[in-house]
Design a protein around this nucleic acid. Structure first.
Lengths: 232, 232
DNA sequence: CGTCGAATTGACCGCGATCAAGGAAGGTGG
DNA sequence: CCACCTTCCTTGATCGCGGTCAATTCGACG
């Protein structure tokens, strides 16, 4: 296998600085698979045999308990997921399912741990990546505990707007019921919450969101870099 | 400074395997301070100048937004906190205050990053520690989103019971209003929640909790290793 | 004994869950 | 091309959990 086999994967922060030789070694043992939508890739509690990398499509991380289910995150290319379970050789804490047709690279966790021991650059990148993941979950916990659901939705909309380029009109990237689950509410309540944001200039039609009055919305949402910025 | 200066710190997983030389180097630049209760050690948003290690006492991590505040975690000896911010050289996401008289070791974040680059064992330990932190926050998010407050309290009680040795009688280690904040509810509601657990054999007097019927409580709480176990 | 903060209790109310029904959109098959 | 079905979204009605406000009790401490 040549080093050009997974150029997109190589560009990930996690892999970009490691020695060619070690990257090759990881990729040699890797599988690539295409999955249809709605396939459960990972079931929580299972041993973490593979580090997953999504190259195309989208994946939802979710968890269940006592017949209830909640969405934890949506993963888009190019990203790894369940890195922590892989490196700790511990059971998955979350399940994962494809939302669309998706292309996934699977690297045996054992290989990740071996290369980690040999490549200092990879180890460094791993620490940065894990610290990033940790901080993301902390932010989402703050979002959940400090904000009402209306405030959460307002900030979610502002974050999506930024992702979409910042224009006044943009498309929600996932189904509303999944947005509801991410924000910890029911679909019914999400509908009402969208209406509740109309006084602040938010209008929704299908998946299209229009922000008529950016300043009003920001004034209500009070976005905060320590909760809403992805990179700090 | 001799290597026996911080024997307790040396026993932490994070430091136990690193080279003496590097540990010494970290400790040479470290400060030790005793703080009275209710001192704000860290303010969220500030640059992360120090990795903190609690040697005695207890510390609460909390966050604020829009005049609201919530407890995120309680830290007890011997543990590090805010490792992720230190290693990423990013602003603190949470504030920290002492709950009791506490003894804290402060290691300049710059030193942590330097030693990390030189000591592979330390880097490995760091990854394990961060993965552990990440998984803890994920578990607490599952707890928050999948359980009612009564179920959360029931499981919190069971976890505390385990920490306390497993007996039918034990003491809550922190004030009730802090328990309430950790569980995302008000003190008033916590009082009612305790009463709501009486049918399952839970009785509270001051800080003393008595579990009259362990099986009833477990049947209601449905504890799950993927949410409630600290080590998996 | 007096004081202050914490905990409890009660009354009230609003947010969000639940249940049920009605539309809208997309896919399938005749 | 259209009838039909499924799935998602929306809307309405109702209900209960949990938040808020206020008053009281409890407990630690000086």
């Amino acid at each position: 296998m040549s080093e050009t086999l997974y150029p997109e994967v190589r560009t990930l922060h996690l892999f970009s600085k490691m020695a060619d030789e070690h990257f090759e070694s990881l990729m040699r043992g890797a599988y690539v698979q295409n999955f249809p939508p709605q396939i459960e890739l990972i079931t929580e509690g299972d041993p973490s045999d593979f580090l997953h990398i999504i190259v195309a499509g989208s994946v939802e991380l979710f968890s269940t308990w006592n017949r209830r289910e909640t969405a934890m995150a949506t993963i888009r290319p190019i990203s790894t997921f369940i890195l922590a379970a892989s490196i700790k050789d511990a059971p998955y804490l979350m399940s994962a399912r494809t939302l669309e047709k998706s292309r996934i690279v699977l690297i045996p966790s054992q290989d990740v741990r071996s290369v980690f021991d040999e490549d200092a650059d990879f180890a460094r990148a791993m620490v940065t990546e894990l610290a990033q993941c940790y901080r993301s979950v902390v932010k989402s916990t703050k979002d959940l505990k400090l904000r009402t659901s209306l405030e959460q939705l307002a900030n979610y909309i502002l974050r999506q707007q930024t992702c979409a380029g910042g224009g006044a009109k943009f498309e929600l990237p996932i189904e509303k019921r999944r947005v509801a689950s991410l924000l910890g509410m029911t679909p019914e309540n999400l509908s009402r919450a969208f209406k509740g944001l109309q006084p602040y200039g938010v209008y929704v039609n299908g998946n299209q969101v229009t922000i008529k009055n950016q300043n009003d919305l920001i004034g209500f949402a009070k976005p905060n870099p320590l909760i809403d910025d992805f990179n700090t």
